[in-house]
Design a protein around this nucleic acid. Structure first.
Lengths: 106, 106
DNA sequence: AATACATATGATATTATTTTCATATGATAT
DNA sequence: ATATCATATGAAAATAATATCATATGTATT
């Protein structure tokens, strides 16, 4: 009997999945899985405005999915929670199945 | 080098995490992890309107996270993808840590 | 076949998220 | 100290998600 989730835990998991439910933020996390990148590199790579990138990165940072460090003029972002990538990668694996049309037992 | 996600896969993972980024839907999945339930039972348990429950269940069904089967007047919903619950449970485990204030290495 | 019960559906209203734009801040170089 | 480059921030505008309400559909009961 696994049901009945505490309100706090529910709010927290809500926050987490909200963060993951945005294509830009997912792409950011996947990019950063390779190596830290600064804001300019990220917005270039994802072809989004500097400001939009900055807003999204701020959200990820606020909820401690990434951290940042300044190097001269630019600010480098990096992953700050390896566990999250397990979840992201499971999500991607699932999506891969769906896209390929692989069905599970009914 | 794990970056560069196909547009389709990105759209799909977006759909998936959107579905999971709603407290009501998470609770539904957790409830159904135990056993199938009909719409009335679900809306009672979660204290939401019949119509709201129905709308949310329709979304979960559309993306094949649940399936349903009629039994007389009522319609029973059940989980239709065990993998998803791995993701949900990882999310919940993470949230549990966050709520308890456990920090990961920085 | 009329009524009641369970669920679904469509339209609208409400609320939340995301983008955009303008501008601010902080660091470096001249 | 001024100019320039990189990033952040606030507010408004644009877009998306959710709840609500009214009603429709499908099944069972009389």
């Amino acid at each position: 009997m696994n049901n009945k989730i505490s309100t706090k835990k529910l709010a927290e998991v809500h926050e987490l999945f909200k963060l993951l439910s945005n294509p830009t933020r997912i792409q950011m996390l996947v990019l950063l899985e390779d190596h830290p990148m600064n804001v300019g590199q990220i917005s270039d790579e994802l072809k989004i405005e500097q400001s939009a990138a900055s807003h999204q990165l701020a959200m990820l940072k606020k909820h401690q999915l990434v951290s940042n460090v300044r190097d001269g003029k630019s600010i480098y972002y990096q992953l700050d929670d390896p566990h999250i990538m397990d979840i992201v990668n499971e999500g991607l694996a699932h999506s891969d199945h769906v896209v390929r049309g692989v069905k599970h037992g009914n």
